[in-house]
């Protein structure tokens, strides 16, 4: 067991090979060893990095089988009775299959359940569209009382998991499935609702979030030059002040996300800018279509222009 207080002294895991979801699972176990209220609610996907929790705390690893409606409802009930459930499943199953249970049982009652969504975006490249979640942020953002967080790497995912527990209200963590390149150097206190400027520049601002996408944006920005990059892990509530300030300082904004451009980060940014600081805006993301071609993750990102070269190309075509 690693005491949470010691974590800032070093890395909890190898960020190069650890997925955000795996890091979230590790955080859940570390937190659970300190907090007896924590339980893991499962829907038959516990073998996705959950086995250590099951071995360590079998009585608090509650599997509902392939039954998301009942798993989500029960997670809400457990939370109402004083437990602190982490609900671990694929993003699409939690937010879409069991959407109404998330809406009523968790969100309406402000039941402090942390929904940890894996296989989000198109990272499940070979699994096909049933396993993609490209509309989950749209659904999650529309639900009152639900905080929506898409960490940029495994380290941030670990830290955000702790913050989500401390938040004491419903949270959706969007965690991908592939180990993306490291963005942050070490563990840090994750502040819900705060974006972070990763790179300064004056000609435009790119606002982005999520595993793999943030590093691809950083690489694109290096090629583009005078570009500000903002990591916006909390999609809701979004950092309005940082968006307004970025728009005023750079005059143009681009958003990049591994999600449909309907209702995701780009929409959230557009909503703020339209009201607070109207500037030209370009939304880069997935089209309003199912991703039917299978392929490995890197190939999928390249095909949809979400790799560094594609982002650079799109920004140049629009802004230069």
């Amino acid at each position: 067991m690693t005491a949470l207080a010691d974590i800032r002294e070093g890395l909890r895991f190898d960020p190069a090979t650890t997925t955000a979801f795996e890091a979230c699972r590790m955080a859940q176990l570390d937190l659970a060893l300190e907090d007896p209220r924590i339980v893991s609610v499962e829907a038959d996907l516990g073998d996705c990095w959950g086995l250590k929790f099951r071995e360590s705390l079998p009585d608090r690893f509650l599997d509902f089988g392939i039954a998301e409606a009942s798993a989500v409802g029960a997670a809400a009930g457990l939370a109402m009775a004083g437990k602190r459930p982490f609900l671990n499943t694929f993003g699409t199953f939690a937010l879409m299959r069991a959407a109404e249970q998330v809406r009523l049982d968790i969100c309406y009652h402000r039941a402090p359940v942390v929904i940890a969504g894996m296989f989000t975006g198109i990272a499940a490249g070979f699994s096909g569209p049933t396993h993609h979640a490209i509309e989950d942020v749209s659904v999650a953002r529309a639900l009152p009382n639900l905080t929506v967080i898409a960490p940029a790497d495994a380290l941030q995912a670990y830290d955000a998991t702790r913050a989500a527990l401390e938040h004491n209200a419903p949270v959706y963590l969007r965690l991908g499935v592939e180990p993306g390149p490291q963005v942050y150097a070490g563990h840090d206190r994750f502040e819900i609702g705060r974006g972070r400027v990763l790179r300064e520049g004056g000609s435009l601002t790119i606002v982005t979030c999520g595993v793999t996408i943030v590093p691809e944006v950083l690489a694109a920005a290096d090629r583009l030059g005078d570009v500000r990059v903002v990591d916006m892990p909390t999609i809701k509530p979004i950092d309005r002040e940082l968006l307004r300030q970025s728009a005023e300082r750079t005059g143009r904004v681009v958003t990049v996300e591994e999600h449909s451009t309907i209702g995701g980060l780009g929409s959230a940014v557009a909503e703020v800018l339209a009201e607070d600081a109207p500037v030209p805006l370009r939304m880069i993301g997935l089209p309003d279509a199912f991703v039917k071609e299978i392929g490995d993750y890197a190939e999928q990102l390249r095909r949809h222009g979400l790799d560094a070269a594609g982002i650079e190309r799109e920004v140049r075509a629009w802004a230069y």
Binding site: L62, A74, G77, L78, M80, D105, Y108
Partner: peptide, 23 residues
């Protein structure tokens, strides 16, 4: 529990009962 959309009460009841049992 806020109810009206049917089929919600029993899953939440299961969670409440599990917590009561554990405690």
């Amino acid at each position: 529990l806020a109810t009206g959309s049917l089929g919600h009460g029993l899953p939440v009841g299961v969670g409440l009962a599990m917590a009561a049992s554990a405690d």
